[in-house]
């Protein structure tokens, strides 16, 4: 860091401190119970991720079985931040070619089950589907639907466990117990870095409480000077030895998407 940026940064920190908005400087979990600490970390993580409004991304998923055989899925995703409720999402599949044009609309909710519709282009049919299937594999991958849904405080109870280093980064180690009885997990152990509250690694424990999967995040990029997003997520299933690599090829925030871009009509014309 050169002198100029040092000064600029210290001025910015001072200004922020005076204004009382620098969460980073204020954040402290001292004197709280482990449950309160876990919740405080989760709230801080969520608070740092507010205000992104909307995003458009292109994502590639590579599925690998235990023999190393690969299968590719490409999709485009549109997301809309909804205040006071879960986000809205529209996913359009490009490969495999036989599902090209298939699209998935999701209204996630904080206090009730999500609303989901699937568009089947060959039949031109929109089907409302059950969102009960949280633990099911997404497109045959090692990611379950619930692994890809937006992070909401209400979905878990938290417990701070320890401070640990992951790949040389100082992290909070937090236990997250899903509140939804339909979740495929009894618990998740998440490591969030202390500096930016970004997920670094998550261990997933199945209904029999044995280690099922591990998710690692890498290649974080900073968007709009505020939002950190991993360009790569790797999910390894320890029981089947299958794995899925999820790479974000392009990502853009505040593209001007509106509520009217997320309904059954836009689902049908999504290409």
């Amino acid at each position: 860091m050169n002198t100029f940026t040092k000064i600029a940064s210290s001025i910015a920190t001072t200004v922020a401190l005076l204004a009382g908005v620098s969460a980073q400087a204020e954040f402290s979990i001292a004197g709280l119970s482990p449950a309160e600490q876990g919740l405080a970390i989760a709230k801080e993580r969520k608070a740092r991720d507010l205000g992104w409004e909307d995003s458009v991304s292109t994502v590639t998923m590579t599925l690998r079985n235990s023999q190393g055989e690969e299968s590719l899925r490409e999709m485009r995703m549109k997301s809309l931040e909804v205040s006071d409720d879960g986000d809205k999402g529209l996913t359009i599949f490009d490969t495999p070619k036989d599902v090209k044009g298939t699209a998935f609309l999701n209204f996630s909710h904080v206090d009730k089950s999500d609303d989901q519709w699937l568009y089947l282009p060959a039949l031109k049919r929109v089907k409302r589907i059950s969102s009960r299937n949280k633990s099911g594999p997404f497109m045959g991958s090692e990611f379950a639907y619930e692994d890809l849904s937006s992070f909401e405080i209400e979905k878990y109870t938290f417990k701070f466990l320890a401070e640990e280093k992951i790949n040389g980064i100082d992290c909070y180690k937090v236990e997250q117990i899903p509140t939804d009885k339909n979740s495929g997990y009894t618990s998740q152990i998440a490591w969030l870095d202390k500096e930016h509250f970004r997920g670094q690694k998550v261990d997933f424990y199945d209904r029999k409480k044995s280690l099922l999967k591990t998710l690692t995040f890498s290649d974080y990029k900073l968007y709009l000077n505020k939002y950190w997003r991993p360009m790569q997520m790797d999910m390894i299933n320890h029981q089947t030895k299958k794995s899925t690599e999820l790479k974000t090829a392009t990502l853009e925030f505040k593209t001007g998407l509106k509520d009217s871009d997320f309904n059954k009509a836009t689902l049908k014309r999504a290409r």
Binding site: S130, R132, N133, S135, G136, P137, N182, G184
Partner: peptide
Amino acid sequence: YTYYAPFDTSWD
């Protein structure tokens, strides 16, 4: 009616 992941499978 759909049974999700019955009998320790990932089937629907």
